[in-house]
Nucleic acid binder design. Structure first.
Lengths: 122, 122
DNA sequence: TAACTGTACTAATAGTCATAGTACAGTTAT
DNA sequence: ATAACTGTACTATGACTATTAGTACAGTTA
């Protein structure tokens, strides 16, 4: 369910956050689904429980997960919509990336091609 | 020449690196131009000399600048070409960003519009 | 009651970023 | 030659983050 690269420069908890968000967006995780517990996932990924908790807290704060003390951690009801809103903020990222690539003289068609192929997969 | 945000999450030396690269790509800095000295720039930006040196070292390693002990730091002869090559690597970044946005259901047209407006500026 | 759940702490380690200070060697103009 | 510049190298320190480690508490469920 999760693929963790321990020696990556991107923190483990961020890997869990982004991979969870991907699973929600791709429909693998649906609203109400129970997530693995903090302890069990920490054992399965050979990672400290605190690292998992940090990831779950972040996802809870973003409205993707809903943690219930004593019961477990569940996918929030409007997780998909929340993520779409959050992703819209990434358009700024795309804009500045396109700015640099344009400045570097990369042909516009190459960028368009990247976009096209990303949408063809679906 | 440089606009530094000291409390930004992106390190000061990285800000200098990326801003220098932008100046080279936009033609403000041309091959052979002498950069401000480590010490003078550190004073002007109210930053430690070591921070400037780290930025210049990085730019030297990327082939953008050419540091000559005793003389100064100069824009490398093929700085523009080096940067174009380096930027081509960022297409991967664009690809994964487009993947996420596509997955989130952001309309393809919005992404295309970002690309178009970036190239219209030029 | 026992075994699970999330949560909240503290402590310690490791790494990065930045500051601070010093020193050395090469270049240049006076 | 001297002074003033240049890049470079090095150590030490403080702040912050990521992570591991361990313990403890409160709610839930069979």
């Amino acid at each position: 369910m999760f693929q963790i690269q321990p020696y990556s420069p991107v923190p483990v908890y961020e890997q869990i956050v982004s991979q969870t968000e991907r699973l929600v967006l791709s429909g693998v995780l649906k609203a109400g689904d129970q997530m693995p517990s903090v302890r069990s996932l920490s054992i399965r990924l050979s990672v400290n429980p605190n690292t998992i908790q940090k990831a779950y807290n972040e996802l809870d704060a973003r409205g993707v997960l809903c943690a219930v003390p004593g019961k477990g951690c569940f996918v929030a009801v409007n997780a998909g919509e929340r993520l779409t809103e959050l992703c819209r903020g990434k358009l700024t990222e795309l804009r500045s990336l396109a700015d640099v690539l344009a400045l570097a003289g990369i042909p516009k068609e190459e960028l368009i091609q990247c976009i096209e192929s990303a949408y063809e997969k679906r």
